[in-house]
């Protein structure tokens, strides 16, 4: 007979490096793939999204101003801490997505590998996407990629860790800061990722994780004038057109949602890095 009291889990949001409850006080029950209770998660409101954007904007100068090499190291450190938490991630992915332990573990390994892969890209982007331009004039002309700014990410609804890592890491690698709305039904790997980020040198506010409903928060983030780009991957199908339309009001960069969730194990190439990079071109007079 066990005398231990059960430690019931009520998770919170991850905003500005802290773990606040939702401003609204709401929470919801998270169940496993079979419908059994797993934990309570905070149910973020539009005001949490507003606070998260303020935090992300505040963190942007430091994160985008860090050297690419430093960003790469910080992201690699995240992968290291994820590796240490791999059993916990495996358990959560297995429960949430209804996978066997071995398949869940494979998904977790793929997520960590994906994160390491993007960590390696930070100091190579400028060389691959920028460079000297041949121009017909007495100028030294070159282009280089710069981060777009605050990116709202509606994370994939199905793939709760590999999908999340695949959409979040490229945003960070480019030097952007992120406000992420996690999978509604499967938020626990994202909550654990928040705990990883809080203990791995990522400055406060660079990543803000909101557990809740993309259908509720998406419109506020799409319309928000201080959000520079939005990734609609996890947006409900019925809202996608409307979200793209509202995002146009402040000329956001929009990554459209694929018809169905892609195979996240496939090599993504640069397809998720370039949408959140702007190209700056400098014309430097020569010979005068």
């Amino acid at each position: 007979m066990s005398d231990r009291l059960a430690v019931r889990k009520t998770y919170k949001l991850y905003v500005n490096g802290a773990f606040p409850r939702s401003e609204s006080g709401r929470s919801y029950e998270v169940t496993d793939a079979k419908g059994h209770f797993l934990a309570n998660a905070a149910w973020a409101s539009r005001k949490d999204a507003r606070d998260a954007v303020v935090a992300a904007r505040g963190a942007f100068a430091k994160w985008s101003g860090a050297t690419a090499y430093n960003r790469g190291q910080v992201l690699y450190r995240v992968a290291e801490v994820m590796e240490g938490r791999a059993p916990q991630f495996t358990e959560e992915v297995a429960a949430g997505e209804g996978l066997s332990t071995s398949r869940a573990r494979a998904a977790v390994d793929a997520a960590i590998d994906r994160w390491v892969w993007y960590a390696g890209w930070t100091d190579k982007l400028a060389a691959v996407l920028g460079g000297a331009n041949p121009v017909a004039g007495p100028y030294f002309d070159f282009s280089l990629p710069e981060p777009t700014g605050v990116v709202a990410v509606l994370a994939p609804q199905q793939s709760s860790l590999l999908g999340l890592a695949s959409v979040l890491a490229p945003v960070l690698a480019g030097g952007n800061t992120a406000v992420v709305v996690t999978s509604r039904e499967r938020p626990l790997p994202a909550v654990t990722l928040g705990e990883v980020l809080a203990t791995s040198d990522v400055p406060a506010g660079v990543v803000n994780l909101l557990t809740g409903d993309a259908a509720e928060l998406g419109p506020w983030l799409a319309e928000h004038a201080d959000v520079d780009a939005i990734d609609l991957t996890g947006a409900p199908v019925r809202l996608r057109l409307e979200l793209e339309r509202s995002a146009a009001g402040t000329v956001k960069r929009v990554v459209r949602a694929p018809e169905t969730e892609p195979d996240w194990a496939a090599d993504p190439g640069l397809s998720r890095l370039t949408p959140f990079l702007e190209t700056k071109t400098v014309w430097h007079p020569m010979g005068v």
Binding site: R50, R57, W220, E223, H224, A225, D226, S246, G249
Partner: peptide
């Protein structure tokens, strides 16, 4: 004030 007028959040760029 802009938030009340337009119905969406504004930002320091505005």
């Amino acid at each position: 004030r802009q938030k009340l007028r337009t119905g969406h959040y504004s930002g320091p760029d505005h």
